[in-house]
Design a protein around this nucleic acid. Structure first.
Ligand SMILES: [Mn+2]
Ligand SMILES: [Mn+2]
Ligand SMILES: [Zn+2]
Ligand SMILES: [Zn+2]
Lengths: 142, 142
DNA sequence: ATTTAGTTTAGAATTATTATAAATTAACAA
DNA sequence: TTGTTAATTTATAATAATTCTAAACTAAAT
């Protein structure tokens, strides 16, 4: 639940000019109570259907990637034909409902800490992510 | 290290005709000591460069998807612009080296069992996969 | 006000993947 | 064998997500 002026400084502080388009995208993504997951297409549709502004698809891609690079979004890869973004930038894991194609955040109390006993020599761990795929009982198993 | 005749029965047993193309792909994928990870492009290149047979890209896609559906391959999604396949069909986790773009299998002794305390109501867990991204110490963290 | 560099945009290009539909081939029965 | 049938392969077109390009626009600095 941030105000417009807060987005302006947030953008300025990260070296991004607070343009009309970026502020609108900030509002859509960050001016709400709960974090959520979306695809570029979801976002483009949301903006064109629910607001008067027209933001070109190229700008949406540019902005989302800029926000990701600045750490304001995380990218979640579930399938190779679609990329999800997450406004929850804390470390967390996901359930993926194969029936509805929805991503659901795991709380820390739902999945215990992942115990990595041996890392690759000379490398540093940059992230650890668990994906739990779920489906109705009557579905095929993986 | 399977023989050609074994691939013939394996294919027949799963309702797939043992065509010349499928047998060649079996040989390339399964006639070796260790499991490995590959992309469709890797495989197409491998076949066209190291063998005389020309298999059309459409057939490679068809075959890999058929093998995946029959459970002879697993698909691993790391990034949205490329899909990896895995000849190791046992339950296991992965390291992904962001410097080299290589996938590395985790042994059971490297990552402890993931403890899922609460599943989504009414759903069945179809898979649990951990992806540990690693990079050189001098790289950016996630 | 002028300049400059950053940003937006429409549209083209790229790339992975899937669809189409005709030619080929494996399986099967006569 | 031989003919029939359905599965498979293939070249090619289509699709769809994403990136690129280059011109127009705009925020920031002078
Ligand atoms: Mn794709
Ligand atoms: Mn893609
Ligand atoms: Zn999330
Ligand atoms: Zn593997």
């Amino acid at each position: 639940m941030l105000k417009n002026s807060e987005f302006v400084s947030k953008l300025r502080n990260s070296g991004l000019r607070p343009t009309k388009q970026r502020l609108k995208i900030c509002e859509v993504l960050f001016n709400r109570d709960k974090t959520f997951h979306f695809t570029i297409n979801d976002l483009a549709k949301n903006i064109s259907e629910n607001f008067n502004e027209k933001i070109s698809l190229a700008t949406i891609y540019n902005t989302i990637h800029a926000f990701k690079d600045k750490g304001y979004l995380k990218e979640i890869t579930i399938s190779s034909d679609k990329s999800y973004f997450d406004t929850n930038i804390t470390k967390h894991h996901h359930f993926y409902d194969e029936d509805t194609n929805l991503l659901i955040d795991c709380n820390d109390n739902e999945i215990g800490k992942v115990n990595i006993k041996n890392n690759i020599t000379g490398k540093k761990i940059s992230s650890v992510e668990v994906l739990v795929r779920v489906a109705s009982d009557t579905q095929n198993q993986n």
